[in-house]
Design a protein around this nucleic acid. Structure first.
Lengths: 220, 220, 220, 220
DNA sequence: TATGAATGAGCCTTCATTCAT
DNA sequence: CATGAATGAAGGCTCATTCAT
């Protein structure tokens, strides 16, 4: 097995795209199956079957189910990262104005609609991360990054007068990301009873600059 | 099962009470183990062992693992309901002023500290509820009730001038419950990076009445 | 258990009819269940349930499942014996003319129609008897008795000129009983394809006295 | 299963042949164990052990115990069919004179001596067939075929003057097959008390042409 | 690379049996 | 006499993993 894993590691780099494609196929299959059956119901045979390969092939590429799960975490956090990146891919220059918080919430919402499995899989893996150090590390990193990103948004929004001026950027970011995660959960439990648009609009309103007071931001 | 419980309620002396105790022990054992190993790693043998009984006894009381899981959902949602009830049990007269939102957040926080497993188990079961109709129904009910309760709090807080007057109570409640759930998640991922007190304080601040405007509420 | 069994043995004699009735109920329940599910699917709990008593009561009366099975063999062979006895119960005087072979076949047939389970249960137990000495002894006795009875019938029939005169009574009896048992089997497999009346009539015809030859029997 | 067998038939070199051998080994092991312990005492673990493979291998080939049992029925009915085929395998030209009834009985007898388990296993499975549709179908087919074969024998025997001319071939066949089956049962119960040769000889005698009457058959 | 065959460890469940009441 | 509760010993089956090809 040690041999096998080494071979796979070596292969990832050298053996052309075919191996990489197989890996991706397997990861994608696992991803879908986690969404459908949960980690509890995830079977390596099912993954292999859905990827159209033999079960042994799966072991050839990942060695062990746990190893595959680790790879999945990477796969999924990457996916999550993608989703959080601003619109224009590649051209995202730091110069252009950052999106508003409203836009961020909207994008989060659209993400979960476009990728209905993502929320579920993230929850599954988060839960697992509570017990699995490797996954935990990965998830912490992603969360930190996300929170930092939102914090930045808040800071810029406040500075630009789009948000109320008395915000504690870090705490605000924590509230916002927590809200999004919690919304994800509530949607999972009862999608019909939760109108994300409406609800996030309310939150947005709380963050608006105080009406009477002149915005303290970039002025005079 | 229903029969058993009814018998226990009727209290046919010691016999059924003892049976009810066994049931509770088993549920409690399962509860703890779910927190520790996750549903994925939950083994009936471990449950029985932790409850100090033979595995057959578990089946004697619950018949099947799935049935036990259903009972667990009830057990846990009950627990969650308990936690959300105002402080003084029994003396909670409807006349006394409702707790403030701040207090509600504090209590949620203390709950999760006093019952460190509750959050994890709730997440595990919520996830399962996405695929298991029985659990889903139970969870939806609890969520609806919770949201309604917070909505009431918001309404009263606004009327009393403790909260800003322009809130949409239902949406606000949804934001608040989502926030709490999301916070639960973030705490699970990285407890050290998330200061609930501080963060929830920020949210609280957003809900405060506008400073200049005279509070419309109970004054003069 | 030894104590239990002794108590039961003592009870059978003394403790009034109630105990005996319970025993009979249990045996009857077991009998029916064997017919329905086979020995393979026979469960002591089902037996007790069908007899309307607790499982422990079954053990109180029979001690062990095997013991109950032994009792069942007795119960069933008794039943089978009953069925083979000529019509009038109690008044069956040895003086009255014995039934014809034809009548015997008919009665066997009616038996299996009136007691549809009997054939099945007999087969189940016969099979078991191949491995269980206690049952084997009982079955051998019954078979011997049956064969002897039929042998007697054949002898008398031949003497009376109702049957061909050149029969070997013992062998003939063996053929007849074997035929009945085999018919039972075939009926079990495909009742629709086997017309017992017609078929047994054919056998009967073979046993008829040779037409031309004067019947050697009761003549002159 | 069908696929596996087809693959084996196609003979994809050694691989599938080896698989077919494993299957056969397992079936043979099961067959023997059914004879020894009965269906009641049949354990998959024992089957695997006797076949010299791991229990998982059994499930790899048959999936489930019931499926294996179905395969066993096929296996056994095939075996039974083999036994009933005329002596010379391959050279059995339809031109050569059919065996006499006497020979058929003899062969049946020898069959059960050469394959002492066959009778027992057939009984076990017949019994099961009463409750299991799949097995029932198979057994009905075999019985029908057997009865038809004997019917043919009777018809030819009568035509050839070897049997009495007034036989109802179909009914006669039913009597004969029933007799054989019943004899099987009696042998199972008390082999010592049943002399098949002698007894079947008696039956044979009943079927002989009437002595006085000129045999209508092939004569001058 | 890729696969079919095979396995060991373990899981949920069943069932006859016992024991205190 | 009768029962509910509890148990130990299996039993069928699953699943990740390995190995020879």
């Amino acid at each position: 097995m040690a041999k096998t894993r080494r071979a796979a590691a070596a292969g990832k780099a050298s053996t052309s795209e075919l191996g990489a494609a197989r890996r991706r196929d397997l990861l994608e299959a696992a991803y879908t199956l986690i969404a459908e059956k949960g980690l509890e119901g995830l079977r390596t045979r099912d993954i292999a079957a859905r990827a159209g390969v033999n079960i042994s092939t799966l072991h050839y590429y990942f060695g062990t189910k746990d190893a595959l799960l680790v790879a999945i975490v990477e796969h999924v956090t990457d996916k999550f990262g993608e989703e959080r990146k601003p619109a224009s891919p590649g051209a995202a220059s730091p110069a252009e104005p950052p999106e508003s918080l409203r836009a961020h919430l909207e994008r989060a919402w659209r993400s979960f609609q476009d990728h209905p499995h993502l929320a579920t899989v993230l929850q599954e893996l988060s839960l697992r991360a509570q017990r699995e150090p490797a996954a935990r590390t990965a998830f912490r990193a992603v969360h930190k990054e996300w929170n930092l990103g939102v914090e930045q948004l808040v800071r810029q929004g406040a500075r630009a007068g789009q948000l109320r001026s008395d915000l504690d950027p870090r705490a605000a970011a924590a509230v916002i990301t927590s809200f999004i995660m919690g919304a994800m959960l509530q949607l999972g439990i009862d999608a019909g009873a939760f109108d994300f648009h409406h609800v996030s609009g309310e939150l947005d309103r709380w963050l608006a600059p105080a009406p009477g007071k002149p915005s303290r931001g970039r002025k005079a």
